Amino acid sequence: MELAIVLGLLGFEPAGKSRLNQLLPRVTCEGCTAFRDAVIKGNQLMLQLFALFCEKGMHEKFKFVHVILTDGEDNKSQTSLSEFLEYQKLIQQKLPPNILQTFYIGVNVENNNTVKQEMSAILKCSGKSASYYPISSNQINDIFQKIQMQIGIRVQEQGVIIENNQARFALRQQTYQPVVSMQVNNYIVLFTLDVSGSMSDHWYKVCSAVRSFLDTLGSNDLVLGITFNDTVQVLTATQQQQAAKKTQQTSTPQRTQQRTQSSQPQRQIKGVERTENESSCCQIF
């Protein structure tokens, strides 16, 4: 199976063509929080993609970035905390050092002792590759910018002050530039986002932060979006599968008496379309 097709089935999309900006605002925040199940799902997809890249000799070209945001303790996962911790240790063994950075973001959880204890245990078994940021909802965009800096994108701020007799205004302009380094990395960014009922008040801030993050990624970077409440959903993979089913349905030739004669041109057209799609998808590499 072609690499581009496998990427689509897993849910990974080129950053410049990702539909997350359209999909995330449509999400309804409701239900509980299956935090651990969602993180493990993201890790499983990373391992599958890494194994595929190893087969293709591409594993040294990419770095994985896993951004996980929640605003409460896990109350729905089938995975226990002890099982989750064991799985995190497995990730450290399966992936080479420095290929994965994980960022846990806790929104408005500073007074939640259960979250504090669980995150402390998670960080201990995740090593230096994981960071945890407890923030308020007003800091969501700021923390996404901080993550951009840590993975290799620098935020430059230039201030301009406009002053007259009545008022004094400070304007701030931000530009994003890659940090200069000897080696250029392509990034695979997974957004694993809580969409439980308590997220409804600040979901629009999350959508805005993700949109700004995507705007700073390069044409060779890949992204994937996971949402979780009572269940875990890979948004982009679901869309890919629906599109594939729709294509199969619309391309099925009608059963007529002239089927033998008419099916040959249809197969030729399908073959041309498939070749064009595959070549355009593979251009990201």
Rank of each mutant, 00 (worst) to 15 (best):
M1Q: 10
E2I: 00
V6S: 05
G11F: 02
G11Q: 08
F12G: 03
P14I: 04
N21P: 02
L24C: 08
L24S: 11
T28S: 11
T28D: 10
C29G: 02
R36L: 13
Q44C: 02
M46C: 08
I68H: 02
G72D: 11
G72F: 08
D74E: 12
N75H: 02
F84L: 08
F84G: 07
E86V: 11
Y87I: 07
K89C: 15
N98V: 09
F103P: 10
Y104E: 04
V107D: 03
N111R: 10
N112G: 06
N113P: 06
V115C: 05
M119E: 10
S120A: 14
S120H: 13
C125M: 08
C125F: 14
F144D: 03
K146A: 02
V155A: 11
Q158C: 04
N165Y: 01
A167R: 14
R168F: 01
L171Q: 09
L171V: 10
Q174L: 12
T175G: 01
P178D: 09
N186Q: 15
V189F: 06
L193E: 07
M199R: 04
Y204W: 11
V206N: 01
S208R: 06
D215Q: 15
G218V: 03
I226K: 00
Q233T: 09
A243E: 11
A244S: 11
K246S: 14
P253F: 02
Q257M: 14
Q258G: 02
R259L: 15
S262R: 11
Q264N: 04
G271M: 07
E273P: 01
R274C: 07
T275K: 12
T275W: 13
N277F: 12
